[in-house]
Design a protein around this nucleic acid. Structure first.
Length: 584
DNA sequence: CGATCCGGCGCC
DNA sequence: AAAGGGCGCCGGATCG
């Protein structure tokens, strides 16, 4: 295992460990109601632990949990062990309390269940405790619905603490059990890093949601006016959309047409003598009919209107910040998801509205060509790793084996990672297979495993979910040409092939993010956005260079933490900009 | 009628 | 040129 980094290290010798359960004041008989309890979300119980998770001394009941956590954090900076950061940390943060590191029981349970092939079993602290004691396992509560800020009860800051769980003794036993299960994995050091990064992600997600992405409503409005022509006074479509719809109808020589309906569009084209299988944009781009370019323009603007228009702004932007709710581990590959707001799909044109505060700036960093570099690192393919030392991996690969044709080199690598088999990619893939056998073999092995119904794992040990049980048996679909494999098996192979890469890339990015949070802690900077392989720091303009240097260091640290001494480089594209749209 | 599926497209 | 992985979100279409 590579050298640890404080926030991610599990070397417990110098790090205090503190289990904590929150107790809603007055709602739990184990905690006598105390004067002042509940002013900051209630009291709780703290329990110091040793490195193995065993209790040190008696638990301590506190009436004001946030105060107690802040105090311990200042004195000891322990690793906090708690049931769910998603539930507890918003309450602490609202009270102004930040913590450095934690072990998130719920997220860890999900990782361990997945590792054991028990995907989908309840992952809550209560469920883990029930499994440990042989009690009936309670189902997880259903996921909350997306809830824009300022509406309803305001999920992030005003949700009450969850009802009291099984208590501090149970929590410490579940923690010790998880430590033992982690130790029993194939690569415990890697899995510890995964747990630490996932737990840190839970903290960062809450902080990101609280900070929000700076959003200039006036710029957004101007942009929408420019693109859409201003909202219609009667709640109908914006002026430019209505105009386009009219012109489309005219092009089809009909009085009116429902352009939002793919079915109506296909029929209209058919009446005009153009047979299209669907109305996808790449299909329409090849259609020779005056309506086609109009429809393409309509779709683009319609998308902006419905997904990032005035209604979206009204729902999601408050006080100059877009505040989505991030969900770490919300994607099977370990990528984050968001709940509401579509934060991970902000169209490029709309990013014009993301403007730094006066005197401040954005440091935007994204990891270029991350996935092929991950492939080079995990496969240990020395020739690919050599190419991955270059700033432009595809160009280096092209020079090495593709006769300088960068496009073919890229097609080959993407095809290998996504599972493309046919088309013009085939010969390029053959070049890849011949010249980079270890890398090619790595994804091929993952694909064959998936086709055979086996599970695959990321570098740190995140495990892919099983295929649906209904398809686990014999596949009724006749086997195609691909060596007798069914279409279903091949689809599964493409999934597992991609999983080993995408999930490891997510781990690298999460590790970068966690180390960066540590570096920025206490400084006058804020993390404001994270999207798969891209991070935005909002800081005073004069600090930008220092922040950029910190991001670079953290990228190197992430690489070392995951892969140790690897020749593969993971360069970050860095921009210091006042507007997100100006980032490279 | 609401719940759910699906087409389509935004991002990585 | 098109298609191969992962998502969320919208509105239309369809189901019960």
């Amino acid at each position: 295992m590579s050298p640890g980094w404080p926030a991610l290290s599990y070397r417990a010798g110098r790090i205090a460990i503190m289990a904590v359960v929150a107790v809603v004041a007055g709602a739990d008989h184990r905690l006598p109601a105390a004067p002042g309890a509940g002013t900051r979300g209630g009291g709780g119980v703290l329990q110091p632990l040793d490195a193995s998770g065993a209790p040190i001394g008696p638990p301590e009941q506190v009436a004001d949990l946030a105060l107690a956590v802040a105090d311990r954090e200042r004195r000891e900076r322990p690793r906090w062990v708690w049931a769910s950061g998603a539930a507890l940390y918003p309450v602490l943060l609202r009270a102004g309390v930040r913590v450095d590191r934690c072990h998130d029981i719920e997220l860890t349970e999900a990782l361990l269940l997945g590792y054991a092939g028990r995907w989908g079993e309840p992952r809550s602290f209560a469920a883990a405790w029930a499994r440990l004691t042989g009690a009936p396992v309670p189902p997880d509560p259903p996921p909350r619905l997306a809830e824009p800020p300022g509406h309803g009860q305001g999920a992030l800051f005003e949700s009450p603490l969850a009802p009291p769980g099984p208590g501090i003794a149970a929590l410490t036993r579940v923690y010790a059990d998880q430590l033992a299960r982690i130790a029993a994995t194939e690569h415990p050091g890697r899995f510890r890093l995964l747990v630490a990064a996932e737990s840190a992600g839970a903290l960062i997600a809450v902080e990101l949601g609280a900070a929000g992405l700076p959003w200039r409503v006036d710029v957004h409005d101007a942009l929408l006016g420019e693109l859409l022509g201003g909202p219609s006074p009667v709640g109908g479509p914006p002026r430019r959309l209505a105009e386009l719809a009219a012109r489309i109808a005219a092009a089809f020589d009909v009085p009116q047409l429902h352009v939002d309906s793919p079915l109506e569009l296909v029929r209209a084209f058919a009446r005009a003598g153009v047979e299209v299988p669907n109305t996808r944009s790449w299909v329409l781009r090849g259609v020779d009919h005056p309506a086609a370019p109009l429809v393409l323009e309509y779709k683009e603007l319609y998308r902006i209107w419905t997904a990032h228009g005035w209604a979206w702004q009204e729902a999601w932007v408050r006080d100059g910040r877009f505040r989505p709710e991030y969900v770490p581990g919300g994607v099977v590959s370990g990528r984050w998801a968001t709940r509401g707001g579509g934060a991970l799909q902000i169209p490029k044109v709309i990013r014009r509205a993301v403007v730094a505060d006066p005197g401040w700036t954005f440091v935007v960093a994204d990891a270029g060509q991350l996935e092929p570099r991950i492939l080079a690192a995990v496969s240990g393919d020395t020739r690919l790793a050599t190419a991955a030392r270059a700033g432009d991996l595809y160009a280096a690969l092209a020079a090495d084996a593709f006769g300088g044709d960068r496009g073919r080199a890229k097609v080959a690598l993407l095809g290998a990672m996504y599972g493309q088999t046919g088309g013009s990619a085939a010969p390029a893939l053959e070049v890849l297979r011949r010249n980079y056998p270890a890398a090619f073999g790595y994804v091929e092995t993952a694909a064959r495993s998936g086709e055979a119904g086996e599970l695959v794992r990321s570098w740190l040990g995140r495990t892919c979910p099983p295929g649906s049980v209904e398809f686990a048996g014999a596949d009724p679909v006749p086997a195609g040409g691909e060596g007798g494999r069914s279409a279903r098996a091949r689809a599964r192979g493409r999934f597992t092939r991609n999983f080993v890469i995408q999930a490891t890339a997510a781990e690298w990015a999460a590790t970068l993010l966690a180390t960066l949070r540590g570096e920025l802690a206490g400084s006058d900077t804020e993390l404001v956005f994270f999207q798969h392989d891209e991070v935005i720091v909002h800081c005073r303009a004069e600090r930008a260079a220092a922040v950029a240097a910190a991001v670079t260091r953290c990228g190197e640290r992430a690489s070392a933490l995951l892969f140790g001494q690897t020749p593969v480089r993971f360069p970050l594209d860095l921009s210091t900009v006042e507007c997100y749209a100006d980032a490279s």
